[in-house]
Every structure is written in structure tokens, then in C-alpha cells.
Amino acid sequence: MSRLASLPSLVGSGRAAFARHGFLAVVGLAIVGFAVANPSFLSLANLVNIVSGAVIPLIVGLAMTLVVALGAIDLSVGVALDFGSAFAIVALKDYGVPWYLAVAIGIAGGTLVGVVNALVVVRFRVSAFLGTLGVFFIGGSLQRIFTNGGGPISFRRLPTEYYDLAVGDLYGIPIRILIAAALVVGYFLLLERSALGRKIHAVGQQSRAARVAGLPVGAIVAFGFVCAGATAAVGGLIASANLRMFTPLAGNAYLMDAIAAVFIGASMHRDGRPNVPGTLTGVLFLAMVANGLNLMGLDFNLKDALSGVILVAALAFSVIQHRRRT
């Protein structure tokens, strides 16, 4: 009798394991598929290429992980990224500040966007979606106004140290990867190990219960938006260093992938909550798909359409997986 009784739970736990790791199976299949289509997919140079191309999406994804962990969403991460890039380039070009000051000013630019979001969402109680959508439009418009219609601001004579943020290396490891690694570690410590991280998850999972427990919910949400803005700005610094210019509205390109990576990552977590390793997996998966499709020599536009479909499918898959588990 006891053996019979334990059978369904065994099947159940097997299914749960598949649900959690099902996405990894998909990732594995994709890797095999791309490698068969083009063996150079697995070459070290290409793998480094994938990782280094994933740095900016990863940074934006980390910012989004924090905000989604709080039960909110931030559609203006791209604006924060652009502001980081714009503030730094303008400080370097027009004011000739040293590179480290430019970094600080760039991060302050992204922080500003986060502060506005926090104000709108926490103070004025606007839903995070509509509030950050408004900031998204205002931020885009401000960039157009500032650049007289969206032309890039380029600055060829970047200080070497600043340029190295994107292209330099330290003991053979690209600096941009080091920056991303540092942020991954920092976010991991914040969300998975720190006292604040516990509070963040409590607010995101059951905001009212967190409030009853006496947590300062408003302040925690505000912190999340501000921190996300500052983080996204780091992505903007790297982007501007890479191209040696500020490209208005460039940040918006990262928004959808960041959201997708967070939800894919959340579906892999035991409790279905956003988490840093999951986001990392999600970002690398999307970067890999983009790279693999490129290597297959597909038309640029076809690639866009395919990656859109893969995005929808991956999200749908992760939602189904998550639902099956709960």
C-alpha cells in the first residue's frame, strides 16, 4: 500500500524536475542544432563572441530582475541606459572631465531616471507599467530634443581608460566581461544573500504581507527602481565606449530581451521567482539564438522574425512549465 501511495509522488517529482530543468533541455537542443548547422558555433572564439555580445543585455537583464522581483516592471531601462551613455559622452566631450568622473556622471544619469520612476510609482501610486511607459516616452523625446532629432553624438578622442571599458582587457579577460561578472556577483549577493534581498522578494511575492510584517514597502520599491536605473546606465557606458558615441534611443533595443530573460529565468526557479542565475541563463540563451541564426547565414530580416517567434515560444514554454508546477 505504501509503495502504491508513493508512486504518484515519484512521478510528480519527476515531472517537477523536468519542469524546472526543461528549459535547460531546450537550451541543450538549441546548442546541438546550431553546432550541426555550423560547426564554428562551438569554437572558442565564437563562444567568447557570444558572451561578450551578451554583456549589455545581461546588465539590463539584471536591472530588470531586481524590478520584477519587486513585483513591478520597468519599461524605461532603455532610457536609463541611454541617459548613462549620453551624460558620460557629453561630460567627456563638452566638459573634458576625467574618465572616472564621466563614469560617475553617466551612472548619475541613469540614477535620475530611476528616481523619477520611483517617484511616479511609489509617491503617485501609478502602476509600474504605465508609469515607466510614460517615462519611456518622455526620455525618448528628451533625447530627440537634445540631439535635434536623434542624430548620434560621437567623440572620437575618448580617454583610453574610458574606451577600454568596452574593448580593453585585464590579464587577457575583456574588461566588459569583468564588469558584467562583478555586477552578476553583486546582484546575486543582493538578491540571494542579503537581508535587503529577502525583503525585496517578500515585497514582490506578497506585498501586503510584507507590509503587515512592518517592512517599509515603499522605500524598498523605490530602492529597486533607483538601483535598476543606475545599473542600466553601466550598460550605457559600455555601449558608448564601444562605439565612441552616444546613439539616442539605442537602449530600447534591450528592453524586450531583458523582460524575456527574466521570465525565462523565473520559470526555472523552484518558487518561480526572478533570480540572477536564471536571468543569466535566459540572456545567454537569447544571445546564443541570435548568434546561431547569424552563423546560419540567414537574412537579417528573417533573423528578426525568427527571434521574435523564438521569444514568444520561449516565454509561452516557461509559463506553461511554471503553471504545471503550481
Binding site: 511616479v120 503617485f124 501610486r125 501609478v126 502602476s127 504605465l130 508609469g131 511607459l133 510614460g134 517615462v135 519611456f136 516616452f137 518622455i138 526620455g139 525618448g140 523625446s141 528628451l142 530627440r144 530634443i145 535635434n148 532629432g149
Partner: peptide
């Protein structure tokens, strides 16, 4: 280029007013 700014601001005003 200002119109985007105004429209984004209007979204915020409309939604904040509704929330209040």
C-alpha cells in the same frame, strides 16, 4: 521633438489622476 515629451507627460498625468 517636444510632442513625445508632452504625450508621455500626459500619460503620467492621466494615470496618476486616475490612481488618486
Amino acid at each position: 521633438f517636444w510632442t513625445g515629451c508632452v504625450k508621455g507627460g500626459l500619460i503620467l498625468v492621466v494615470v496618476a489622476a486616475a490612481a488618486v
